Each structure stands twice: as C-alpha cells, then as structure tokens.
Amino acid sequence: MDEDTAIRRRDQGAATQAALLRAVLDAALAEPDRPVLRAALGAAMAGVELGGPGAPRAGVASRIDADPGAGAPRVPESAHALAAWLATPPPLTPGAASLGLAAVNALLPVPPGATPGKGQDLLLALGRGARVVVVGHFPFVERLGGAFAALAVLELAPRPGDLPAARAAEVLPGADVVAITGTTLHNGTLGGLLALCRPGARVVLLGPSAPLAPALLGLGIDALAGAVARDPRAVLDGVARSLPMRRLEGMDAVVLARENFFGLSS
C-alpha cells in the first residue's frame, strides 16, 4: 500500500469511526432517560441495569481497559450521562467506555425485524465456501473454519493460528465475508477496519458489545449479531462474578440485518 492510499484510508477510517459513534449515541439518547440502578465491572464484561417505566433493562459490553481487575467506578445516576462515556476521550476512568456502551445497549430497544439467532450461525451461512476474516478470536472459530474456503483470524493478543491485528491491511481487502467483534466500536478501531473492507464484502458486527442500532446498517455494516438481556438481575450478577459472555444467564442472541440481506430483513 502506497503512502497516499494509507493516508486516505486512515482519514476515511477516522471519519467512519466518528459517524459510527454518533449514530449509536444519537439512537440511545433518543430513548427516554432512565435511572441507573446498578453498574458492574467484571474481569471480562461491563454491565448496566436501568430502571424507569416498565421492567428493568440491562446491557453489557466487553472490557477494553488495561486494568480488568479494577472495580466499577462511581457512575452517573442518569443513563444518558453514562452512555456519553462511550465517546469521552480517554483517560476518564477504568472501564468508562465499556460502561458507556453497556448503558447504550440497555437504552436501545430491540428493533422491529430483529430475529433470534447466533452470530456464529449467521457467519457459517454467509461464509460457506468463501474467504472469511474474523476480527477477534471467538470461541467458535475453530469449529467453523473447515466450512470456509479460507479463514484468517486477526487478534490483538494472537493465539496459535491467529494473525496479529496489525496485519489487517494485508488480509481484509481480500475477504468475501468479514466478521468484526463489537469491541472494536469502543476501542476506536472499527472505522479503520471498515475502511479496509472491499466493496461488496459482507460485513457482520457481532458479540455482546454490538449495539442493535439500525443506523449502523447504513455505515458499512450489513448485519448486527448482538444480545439482549432477558433477566437483567441475573445478567448483572454474572458480570459482577466475572463470568465470560458465554456463561452469562439471562441473555438472548439476536440478529438484525439490512433489508433484503440474504433472506434477512430489518
């Protein structure tokens, strides 16, 4: 990649990242404000429980800060104020961006058109026989790899068989299907990754951090594979006990896709 192309992609990525954050926050802040009943930071996850009209609501997001052992800081009483932590420049406090995204996910309603479904099943349906790149080492990648024509896994902390995240510019432009962890939204890298995807590639944002915000489907993302809290108390209890996402009780996997996207509609 020549220097001009690299600069152009960097600028495009920064603009896309800003648009992604703005779209997510706009969607969350358009919902009525709610009181924050509880916030929890575990070793792997952040969780927020909200009160207000109707039943309590909860949202989660992956931890991205350098001190996963730190407890939850003092948080605002307003869900809107806590959600704004998602876009507050660091450093604010350990876990701030993760708690902000968890508040966003608690505020966002389940959109019309969202259907029950797991990200791994969607990835298998889209990627069979195709060149697939997964950003983030999900537990299911080893089981699915044989169904794809080629599979590359990009990871900040590579495991055996993974590629370092720094090699994204080498592999993303050649992918037919790209699955990106929702953690990239609040660690600031999602916009840059989307700028590397070729036109026509099918892009899925997946994992517990992925917000179910329909506006994201117009910003380079074709489908969202996230999770909603069915039992807020159980979810927050699990987060506080430092359980990983796959062991949290009270969460349901859902998929939201852009209209006419391979048989799925939003």
Rank of each mutant, 00 (worst) to 15 (best):
E3L: 15
R9Y: 00
G13I: 04
G13R: 06
G13V: 05
A15F: 05
T16Y: 01
Q17P: 06
Q17L: 04
A18V: 13
A19P: 03
L20I: 10
L20T: 06
V24I: 14
V24C: 09
D26H: 01
L29A: 10
A30M: 01
P35S: 09
L37E: 14
A39R: 02
A44E: 14
A46V: 05
V48I: 11
L50S: 04
G54Y: 03
G54R: 03
A58Y: 07
G59L: 04
V60L: 15
V60K: 02
A61W: 10
A61L: 12
D65R: 02
P68Q: 00
P68M: 03
G69F: 00
E77C: 13
E77G: 15
S78T: 03
A79Q: 06
H80N: 11
L82N: 10
A84K: 14
W85R: 09
P94T: 01
A96L: 12
G100V: 09
A106M: 02
L107P: 03
A114Y: 08
A114V: 13
G117F: 01
A125C: 11
G127V: 07
A130L: 14
V133Q: 05
V135G: 07
G136D: 12
H137T: 05
E142S: 15
E142W: 01
R143G: 13
L144F: 01
G145M: 08
F148G: 09
F148E: 06
L151H: 11
E155I: 03
L156K: 11
A157G: 01
P158N: 06
P160C: 02
D162A: 04
P164Q: 14
A165S: 14
A169Q: 14
E170T: 10
V171F: 10
L172M: 10
G174D: 14
I180S: 06
T183C: 03
T183E: 02
T184W: 01
L185S: 08
G188C: 05
A195G: 14
P199N: 06
P199W: 08
R202P: 09
P208G: 11
A213P: 00
A213E: 09
A215L: 04
L216I: 12
G218T: 11
L219N: 05
L219Y: 03
G220I: 10
A223H: 02
V228Q: 02
R230A: 15
D231P: 00
A234C: 04
V235Y: 03
V235D: 02
L236G: 04
R241A: 15
S242P: 06
L243E: 12
L243F: 07
R247M: 13
F261R: 02
F262H: 15
L264Q: 06
S265A: 12
S265W: 07
S265M: 00
